[in-house]
Amino acid sequence: MPSIAKVILFFSSAKATAISVGLLGFCMSTTWFHASMDCAAGASNATFENGSATITVGLFDLISERKSCPSIGRDPEFFKVFAELGEIGPAPQILHVLCVLLLVLCLVSSCGSILISLYNSVSNPYETYMGPVGVYVCSSVSACLSFAVLVLFALNVFVNHMPEELVKSLSTLGPLKVRDPQIEMGLGYYLVIPYLALSLLAIGLIYLYQHAAYTHRREQQRPTQDAPKEIMMY
């Protein structure tokens, strides 16, 4: 049977990872950014006094809340993000799909970390992929992939100008010009940060166990190593 310290630390690692999975599941279902901007009909002499457009975007759904914007109505409308991204070009769509796939892989690797941690809390496996090494690998994959999602999604929003292009694609009566986008990253985006932190915490807890176990083994070996040679002969 594992020691009490091992049970506590591995169970705590599993608990931290389980909380991170809950956070990641919630963040995938909520808003990732909110953007508002001025808009005008796409004529050469267009002015930007016509109105404004506001969109709220999640990983899968888009809500349009446009106000007096030309070419499009005022009432809130609901769209599918993947379909709308397909209208504005391959690069934003590919990056968005990649972010979703990476988040799914994060969930899978986190579930693996939970299972391995719980298995170690009730048994004593060897130092294989089912031991601390497995927790290190799964949690490290989760942390690295979630960090990649933070970077890729931000690049898609600010470098590929995804909010502006989405508003333009929603126009049904002709070209649309937009300017002065005000972009706020949503709760879904920011929840990836505590998920990353909890993945690192899971790694830290297992490292703490291994360090304590190594220290304990060294202390048990020290009396024999420090004994006088005459005593050791007997």
Rank of each mutant, 00 (worst) to 15 (best):
D226I: 11
Y209L: 01
V192F: 03
D61T: 09
C144R: 04
T172A: 14
P181C: 11
F79M: 02
I88K: 11
P125E: 03
I8T: 09
K6F: 13
L85Y: 07
S20Y: 01
Y209H: 14
P181L: 09
Y209Q: 05
P223T: 04
M232V: 15
P132A: 14
G86N: 10
V133R: 15
S142D: 09
A40C: 13
V137I: 15
M28R: 04
L166Q: 02
L173G: 05
A46K: 00
L187A: 14
V104P: 06
S110D: 10
P223E: 11
F82D: 15
L23D: 09
R218G: 07
E65M: 06
S146C: 14
M233Y: 01
L196N: 04
Y119L: 11
G188C: 04
G25I: 14
V100H: 02
E65R: 09
A16N: 02
G58M: 12
M162N: 04
N50S: 10
F60G: 05
F26E: 05
S20T: 01
K67D: 15
L191R: 11
W32N: 00
S68A: 09
Y214M: 10
K229A: 12
E49P: 00
S169Y: 15
L196Q: 04
R66M: 13
L145H: 05
A53T: 06
V104R: 05
A16I: 06
I116Q: 00
L23F: 15
I114H: 05
E165P: 00
L187C: 10
T128D: 13
K177Q: 15
G58Y: 10
S171E: 05
F147A: 13
A212N: 14
V157A: 06
A197C: 12
A227V: 03
P2N: 01
Q182T: 04
A213V: 08
G204A: 15
S71H: 15
Q182S: 10
P2F: 05
S29L: 13
C99M: 09
S110Y: 10
V7F: 12
L201R: 02
G134D: 07
L59T: 10
V81F: 11
F78E: 12
V100F: 13
L173P: 00
K15D: 03
F78Y: 11
G134P: 07
S171D: 01
R217K: 13
L196G: 08
T215E: 13
A91R: 14
R217W: 09
L155N: 07
S117M: 08
P175T: 13
A43E: 11
F82I: 12
N50V: 02
P2R: 00
Y189A: 04
L205R: 00
V159R: 04
C69N: 03
L196C: 08
M232Q: 14
P175Y: 07
V151C: 06
